[in-house]
């Protein structure tokens, strides 16, 4: 069984402004601060275990600049059979390409017609930098494969269905809200994304480290993006997740209670109120409510 592990080169120690949360672009970035996210390491380990259990080999794939070859060489030392770096045809700093573009670039390599076709692609559930976790979903769509995202456990063992000629399936566990778990049967071909705690990446044996990996990283060029646009829409400021609205404090409480209410996590949502009224009345009601909760001043 051919398994691929998708790895993303990220800045492991970005300089984040403590007040605004903005990532400072100016800081020194050198080879030591570049690497892969813990989730990607777990993905590589999961891929290696599945390939070992089912007989097969792992290809490590990364979309990124030549600096990404370092992480691919590391993947070779821990047991990946092949390593492919995918170069995007459009210029732009690493990390500026959209999830769909990156997924298309990965699919061009691990797809049935690519240089390293795979029945199973294992990704980290989210990278440390942008971390939207969208690439695996786009990739599954590109490949027409099943998707199992945000997994906390994957059973590597071959099950009864993996008879010759049949592709078989994998068992995986996914995290749900409130501590629940969901056990999935994942048919192949599939794209999986795993959380960082799923598996700890093995250490390379010393002889593998001493062996030269020169020239073992292959390079592929991704096809031109279909939409003609490869980057995120122009942003004036660096990426930040959007704000989430929270319910206001109970205005009848004293200052202490209101302060506690806004600084601790709410125990539950306040009951919803539906107002059926004419537009003018509804607007007045809304304004009154905003004054009540302290969001608007004045009478």
């Amino acid at each position: 069984m051919r398994v691929a592990a998708a790895l993303k080169l990220v800045d492991l120690r970005p300089d984040v402004d403590p007040l605004t949360g903005v990532v400072r672009e100016s800081h020194r970035r050198d080879a030591h601060t570049l690497g892969v996210s813990p989730a990607d390491q777990a993905a590589l380990e999961t891929a290696l275990r599945i390939a070992e259990a089912r007989g097969g080999e792992v290809a490590a794939v990364s979309v990124g600049p030549p600096a990404a070859e370092a992480v691919l060489r590391e993947a070779l030392t821990v047991g990946a059979a092949r390593a492919v770096r995918v170069e995007l045809p459009t210029a732009g700093p690493h990390g500026s390409a959209s999830s769909a573009t990156v997924a298309a670039a990965l699919a061009s390599v691990v797809g049935p017609d690519g240089p390293a076709p795979a029945e199973l692609v294992v990704c980290g559930d989210a990278s440390l930098d942008r971390g939207s976790g969208a690439v695996p979903a786009f990739l599954a769509e590109e490949l027409g494969a099943a998707q199992a995202l945000g997994l906390v456990a994957v059973s590597a063992a071959a099950d009864g269905a993996a008879r010759p000629g049949e592709r078989g399936e994998l068992h995986a566990v996914r995290r749900l809200d409130r501590g629940h778990r969901e056990v999935l049967r994942v048919p192949l071909p599939a794209v999986m994304s795993v959380e960082a705690g799923t598996a700890e990446l093995r250490r390379a044996p010393l002889p593998a480290l001493l062996e030269s990996t020169d020239g073992r990283v292959e390079t592929a060029l991704a096809p031109a993006p279909r939409t003609g646009v490869s980057g995120f829409p122009q942003r004036a400021e660096p990426f930040r997740p959007g704000p989430r609205p929270l319910p206001g404090p109970d205005p009848s409480g004293d200052a202490l209670r209101r302060a506690i209410a806004v600084t601790t996590s709410p125990a539950g949502r306040p009951p919803r109120r539906t107002v059926a009224a004419a537009p003018e009345e509804a607007a007045a009601e809304l304004l009154r409510y905003l004054r009540e909760t302290g969001h608007l001043r004045g009478g």
Binding site: R203, A204, P205, L206, P207, L209
Partner: peptide
């Protein structure tokens, strides 16, 4: 001896 597998040099 090192702390890696096959780690004697």
């Amino acid at each position: 001896r090192t702390d890696r597998e096959g780690g004697e040099v």
